[in-house]
Write a protein that binds this DNA or RNA. Structure first.
Lengths: 191, 191
DNA sequence: ATGGGCATGTAAGTAGTTACATGATTTA
DNA sequence: TAAATCATGTAACTACTTACATGCCCAT
């Protein structure tokens, strides 16, 4: 049944900011950590059960029938610090766009172009979202704000890099098209 | 058992470039796709068995006892093109460094600085490696070379972004130290 | 002849997703 | 009072890793 260290770290971290229900925790993880971390319900509830069993968190009075908020205990805070101090383990990389481009000759140049254009559009939206969040954070005086800012800056740099790459990649694909069929490229450039 | 579409795509893609053994395939995946894709033996061998069963690949004469090279069949090529044309499914993000920085107040400023410095060093090495591969590729006239170039450029942009972020992040952390204890920051700046 | 790299495969376990079942509370 | 949303949890499944067992072939 798993409930790995990694998930426990995210759950304890979330509860270290404020006590909340499992449902709220999942929303917090999706909204605040979403651009670099993910947990599903199927991970969160077993993790909460295991952490409660070990005394790392405790159930507080129910706000309403059938629900309960969880709060971190002193042992839980200590465990969180231990987990955070462990060396981060690299997630196995899996970039479906790059895999498709690597075998792009089989896929065809036009489909590759569409993949790059979609990536570019996603990066543009991501960049705008990150900028908005950063501007809010820079006026936030909460003690966690500067640390959260670091993660938002990472998202901003990643989005900008994705954008710059997409533009360069489209140039490479244009070069391919020119070599194969100059007329088609001229037509596209004038469209 | 498993042997997902994603793994099949990587295996068929590898064999579309040249017939080879499972062992060689794993080395190719590690070396050529390593910076954006990973497969373990435990994935590759069952995938090969399933693909052979479905007639997508076939075993060729053994180079030596107990081994065999696999070659893609015409059906396999068709299947590869179908798989590549499917929309890429986003891998669930899991960045252990950013998770730790998000909860950086619990971890402590010095540990955060070390995490960022380690990330910076890794990015620097990655950037150098990508540059070297790119320079080789730009003189390569193989028809796959421009497509492979796209993936290397992505690695280069990502590494540069990581580097730029790390420098900005260290600046933010310096700001924190100054606010909390000016003397300590001065000491570090003069070291 | 033996140690290291090539080669294949399996078993056991961990991690993670998805869909489902259930019910309370709020709001339109 | 019906629909949406909040809330908890489980079961079945898919994906993936790691360690192990086995043996071939080449170089020293």
């Amino acid at each position: 049944m798993a409930t790995s260290d990694q998930t426990q770290m995210a759950v304890l971290g979330g509860l270290s900011i404020a006590p909340m229900t499992g449902y709220a925790l999942r929303e917090q993880i999706r909204d605040a950590l979403g651009h670099f971390w993910a947990e599903s319900f199927g991970q969160i509830y077993p993790a909460l059960a295991a952490l409660e069993h070990d005394g790392m968190i405790e159930r507080q009075s129910a706000l309403r029938a059938g629900s309960s908020t969880f709060a971190i205990t002193p042992q839980g805070s200590a465990r969180l610090r231990d987990l955070l101090a462990e060396a981060p383990q690299a997630a196995k990389p899996r970039n479906g766009v790059l895999l498709r481009l690597f075998f792009g000759r089989q896929l065809g140049e036009e489909a590759c172009r569409r993949l790059v254009e979609d990536t570019r559009a996603t990066a543009e939206a991501e960049l705008a979202a990150m900028r908005r969040i950063r501007e809010e954070l820079q006026t936030d005086t909460a003690p966690d704000a500067p640390y959260i800012l670091l993660t938002v800056l990472a998202g901003e740099h990643a989005a900008r890099a994705s954008l710059a790459w997409a533009d360069e990649a489209l140039g490479v694909l244009d070069g391919l098209a020119t070599a194969a069929s100059p007329a088609a490229t001229v037509a596209r450039e004038h469209s």
